[in-house]
């Protein structure tokens, strides 16, 4: 099928609660899939299974057409599956390069024997990646705390891309952003798409999903209730699927 990432029959239970029930889906390279559903529909649980936070009770995950075992967030990162959470997971007291290289700092030898952080290199690489993604940050030396919500988002995305993400999961990327910054995020996602990266976007903003997603997957009460191609559907249909009105009319 040529999916970058595919999940088959994933089930995840918490005690008696079935949070995700037998869900299968796939995302191709350069494709954006919107994941929609009401609160408690199981979207977050599903992406946490993919990103290694939770371990599925049943089902399997295929990455680049090979079945893989994802036991921890580290496993996912090592494969190139990056997740950008709503809270972005940035150290706000550090600057942009420090965050992009966090945990994978570039070292150099000083005086021939001392292993020290290579600040200059990390700074140079950071501006390269930001340029590549067409992202403007006034000064790389500013701490994350001093950046706007959109800029922080951009730093988090840059980090993923710099570390060679092949697959990106974005949790509510436009929430809590101003209108201009929302547009910027949308255009960044489109740019990433053109670089051949597979992306899952979770969002409550129907409008945004319609702008970026090629396909939509709708979940309700842990189950996948529909898979739609964006250009063949409309907001009304999606909403009724999310709240379950469809089943009532049937």
């Amino acid at each position: 099928m040529g999916y970058v990432l595919e999940v088959r029959n994933i089930t995840k239970r918490f005690g008696g609660l079935v949070a995700v029930n037998d869900v299968s889906m796939g995302v191709q390279a350069g494709e954006v899939v919107g994941l929609l559903g009401d609160n408690g529909a199981g979207k977050s649980t599903l992406i946490k299974v993919i990103s290694g936070v939770y371990k599925a009770d049943a089902g399997k995950i295929l990455f680049m057409d090979k079945e893989v075992q994802i036991d921890s967030p580290m496993d996912a990162l090592a494969m190139g599956i990056e997740t950008i959470y709503q809270d972005l997971a940035l150290a706000e007291n550090l600057n942009t390069p420090a965050n992009i290289f966090l945990g994978r700092e570039k070292m150099k030898k000083a005086l021939g024997f001392l292993n020290v952080l290579d600040h200059a290199y990390m700074q140079k690489e950071s501006s390269k990646i930001l340029e590549k993604l067409d992202i403007l940050i006034p000064s790389l030396r500013n701490r994350i705390r001093a950046l706007s919500g959109g800029q922080r988002q951009a730093v988090a995305i840059s980090r993923s891309i710099y570390w060679d993400a092949k697959f990106l999961i974005m949790d509510e990327p436009t929430a809590a952003l101003g209108v201009a910054e929302q547009k910027k995020v949308i255009s960044t996602i489109n740019l990433l798409k053109s670089h051949g990266i597979g992306i899952i976007v979770i969002s409550h903003q129907m409008h945004d999903i319609f702008q970026v997603a090629d396909r939509m997957i709708i979940m309700r009460r842990g189950e996948k209730v529909a898979e739609l191609v964006t250009k063949n559907t409309n907001a009304d249909e999606v909403v009724s699927l999310i709240v379950g009105a469809e089943t009532v009319t049937k």
Partner: peptide, 28 residues
Amino acid sequence: WHLLKNTRFGQHTYAIGGSMDASVRAGI
């Protein structure tokens, strides 16, 4: 001073204080 400013150990010390969550997810 060197340990805190120029090494990974120091950088991670700041990162943990800034965001434990971010540090964990960055693989520290």
